Simulated scan of single mutants.
Amino acid sequence: MLEGLQIIRDDLTGKEIAELLQTHIDDMRATSPPESKHALDLDGLRQPDITFWSVYDGDQLVGCGALKALSADHGEIKSMRTGADARGRGVGSAMLQHIIAEARRRGYTRLSLETGSMAFFQPAHRLYRRHGFTECPPFAEYTDDPNSLFLELVLCRD
């Protein structure tokens, strides 16, 4: 993890995280058709099967991410976002490594995610592939969608 970054569990009550997530949802609405938008709002993220973290550089919120429990051995990454001013500084990698470590700690054997397939999402595709994620079929409640890319990371039990 980058020096100075802190990843903390977040209860989603702060103004800053609400603003970052609203920017995330606004971007998803601008780039994905309504039927292909799977980003969760604050209420959607405040579910017992979702753990949410925020990333801070000092006292500045620079990113976030969440892990949703799909089953006893399968998790889904939700709401990965790096603030515009922090892109290219390793915030996304730090958050992703944190989520992968938590998935392993929970004993998951698979970690999946859905992201957009459009050019806007290419930086996310590169991030996930750099960390070992590969394409997979739709999972959980998702269906085939040309606007979605489904990725997974197979985790070994220690």
Results as ranks from 00 to 15, higher is better:
residue 20 L to Q: 03
residue 146 P to I: 07
residue 32 S to Q: 13
residue 34 P to C: 00
residue 90 G to A: 06
residue 13 T to R: 13
residue 133 F to V: 05
residue 105 R to C: 03
residue 12 L to I: 00
residue 112 S to C: 14
residue 27 D to V: 05
residue 44 G to W: 09
residue 32 S to D: 09
residue 111 L to V: 08
residue 62 V to L: 07
residue 96 L to Q: 06
residue 21 L to Y: 06
residue 116 G to K: 01
residue 107 G to Q: 09
residue 142 Y to M: 01
residue 121 F to E: 08
residue 78 K to G: 03
residue 24 H to R: 06
residue 4 G to D: 04
residue 32 S to P: 06
residue 17 I to M: 07
residue 93 S to K: 15
residue 12 L to E: 10
residue 88 G to V: 09
residue 2 L to Q: 14
residue 75 G to H: 06
residue 129 R to L: 02
residue 79 S to L: 01
residue 2 L to G: 02
residue 128 Y to P: 10
residue 155 L to M: 07
residue 142 Y to K: 08
residue 29 R to N: 12
residue 82 T to G: 10
residue 33 P to Q: 03
residue 103 A to W: 09
residue 153 L to A: 01
residue 31 T to Q: 11
residue 114 E to V: 07
residue 36 S to A: 12
residue 46 R to P: 00
residue 134 T to D: 14
residue 16 E to F: 05
residue 7 I to V: 13
residue 149 L to N: 02
residue 54 S to G: 08
residue 44 G to I: 03
residue 134 T to N: 10
residue 56 Y to H: 12
residue 10 D to R: 02
residue 51 T to M: 11
residue 33 P to E: 00
residue 84 A to G: 05
residue 157 R to T: 12
residue 122 Q to L: 12
residue 145 D to C: 13
residue 42 L to I: 13
residue 28 M to V: 12
residue 117 S to Y: 04
residue 139 F to G: 05
residue 41 D to W: 11
residue 137 P to G: 15
residue 156 C to V: 10
residue 64 C to V: 08
residue 67 L to Y: 02
residue 57 D to A: 02
residue 26 D to H: 05
residue 66 A to D: 01
residue 88 G to A: 02
residue 119 A to H: 05
residue 145 D to H: 10
residue 2 L to M: 14
residue 78 K to F: 00
residue 91 V to H: 13
residue 21 L to A: 00
residue 130 R to C: 06
residue 50 I to N: 02
residue 11 D to H: 09
residue 121 F to C: 08
residue 154 V to L: 15
residue 99 I to P: 15
residue 65 G to K: 04
residue 125 H to V: 05
residue 15 K to T: 11
residue 5 L to W: 08
residue 28 M to A: 15
residue 16 E to D: 09
residue 29 R to K: 13
residue 15 K to Q: 15
residue 84 A to D: 12
residue 77 I to Y: 07
residue 119 A to D: 13
residue 102 E to T: 11
residue 103 A to L: 05
residue 69 A to L: 08
residue 63 G to P: 07
residue 2 L to P: 14
residue 60 Q to V: 11
residue 144 D to V: 14
residue 18 A to G: 13
residue 8 I to M: 09
residue 121 F to V: 00
residue 98 H to Y: 13
residue 103 A to P: 15
residue 138 P to K: 15
residue 119 A to G: 00
residue 67 L to R: 02
residue 126 R to V: 10
residue 143 T to W: 00
residue 136 C to T: 14
residue 73 D to L: 12
residue 69 A to D: 12
residue 71 S to E: 02
residue 45 L to V: 00
residue 127 L to G: 09
residue 69 A to R: 15
residue 143 T to G: 07
residue 40 L to R: 06
residue 82 T to A: 14
residue 26 D to K: 08
residue 100 I to M: 08
residue 106 R to A: 05
